[in-house]
């Protein structure tokens, strides 16, 4: 199934999600509100997206963007599910009840970005030591131990 067919399929099944769906750089992107993220994910799961391949976040300065890569084995297609998390209150709902695959990946996002996931059973740091201060993949993270890159390219 290609992206266009996916869009038609999605619009047929869930007309409310249809306007949120766009095609960027050859990939389907469903940009939702973080309040409705869980419901959207649930809908997509029932639509046939059975794998949560990747889960990460990007720090865009004023907000974080949660990026979920969903893949459907039956449709042989992948797409992104995205939602913007405000920087002041970095909280969103955990997808662990839908996909246990989110268990560790959400821990990693918490570890690196400090985004908290409601409903996650075991939200701790995973890669960094428990006493680490700060969230390294945030763009405003500062650490004296970081080696400064030389000025030239």
């Amino acid at each position: 199934m290609n992206i266009q067919e996916l869009r038609d399929h999605l619009c047929g099944q869930h007309p409310d999600l249809c306007p949120l769906f766009s095609i960027e750089f050859g990939d389907g992107v469903l940009q939702v509100d973080c309040e409705t993220l869980y419901e959207a994910a649930e809908n997509l799961q029932s639509l046939g997206f059975d794998r949560l391949g990747m889960l990460t976040a990007v720090d865009f300065g004023d907000h974080f963007e949660m990026v979920y890569r969903l893949t459907s084995r039956s449709m042989s297609v992948g797409m992104f599910l995205k939602c913007a998390v405000p920087r002041e209150t970095p909280r969103t709902r955990s997808l662990v009840p839908l996909w246990p695959a989110a268990l560790w990946q959400e821990r990693e996002v918490y570890d690196m970005f400090g985004i908290e996931f409601d409903g996650h059973p075991d939200l701790r740091r995973i890669l960094l030591p428990p006493d680490w201060v700060g969230f390294p993949l945030r763009k405003d993270y500062r650490d004296d131990r970081l080696i400064r890159r030389p000025d030239y390219i």
Partner: peptide
């Protein structure tokens, strides 16, 4: 699609795109 333990691959995940 229900996936049971031991389900054979020809019942699951056969791609539509490249039959």
């Amino acid at each position: 699609m229900a996936l049971d333990n031991g389900a054979r691959h020809d019942q699951v995940g056969a791609p539509e795109r490249t039959p």
